[in-house]
Amino acid sequence: MPEFSRRAALMQLGAAGLAAMTPGAAISQNPFASFDAKPWAFLTPDEARFLAALSDVLIPQDAFPSASQAGVVDFIDLQLAGPYGKGADLYLQGPFGEATPEQGYQAPYPPATLIREGIARFEASGTRLADLDASGREDVARRLSEGEGVDLGDVPAQTLFDEIWSLVKEGYFADPIYGGNKDYAGWRMVGFPGAHAYYTDFIGRNAPYRAPPRGIAHVPGRSRSASPARGRPAAPIHPATEEG
């Protein structure tokens, strides 16, 4: 059983169906409630809920897990607690001032602070992202991504969005040793076989490569089932093991 909360996942499933029928309906009374009990390395449970809600808009559940179901919030928590979050690879000397988008990251603090302050500014308005329904969450994601229609004070909304979206993709597709990509969700979804890679005899062949994914820590995963033909349902979340 993956570590993501079965309850939260079920709520999500139900909510998605509900939202489809009745736009605007509340997603649940207490989404991602199990986050209160988790031993987070950096995040507060409320921050974790914000990130879960946002990341599940970016990578929602379909036949493959959503971002939070695949452990993306756990991944982000560990990343923000570590050297990346602390800005170990960022030049953070001042002065800070007006800059163009072409000049890249110019926030006067590292990613962990950016995300903490960004969430705090957003929720200070009295709205908690996790409490919004599906269309409400999507609307916030769109406004953050465009950097418009959302007031985060001096926190640059687009920078915040880009940083989170980057982390979400990393959490979904990075090696599972980092806490995300649980049960190789992301790798199975696309058909990436992982870190153990010898293709000398296959490189010229026009054929699917069906080895099950295997990460750095050698734990073999289940293989992707046959590539879903267009127009038919995609592979199930837990397709039957084909090999190994």
Partner: peptide, 29 residues
């Protein structure tokens, strides 16, 4: 992604601008 084999910007980076009438800012990442 974290660029483990690359130069660490806190130790060595450069500043950048598109044109001479802009203020260059450091390439922080």
């Amino acid at each position: 992604r974290r660029k483990g084999h690359m130069i660490d910007t806190p130790i060595k980076t450069l500043s950048f601008r598109n044109t001479s009438d802009q203020t260059a800012r450091p390439i922080r990442r």
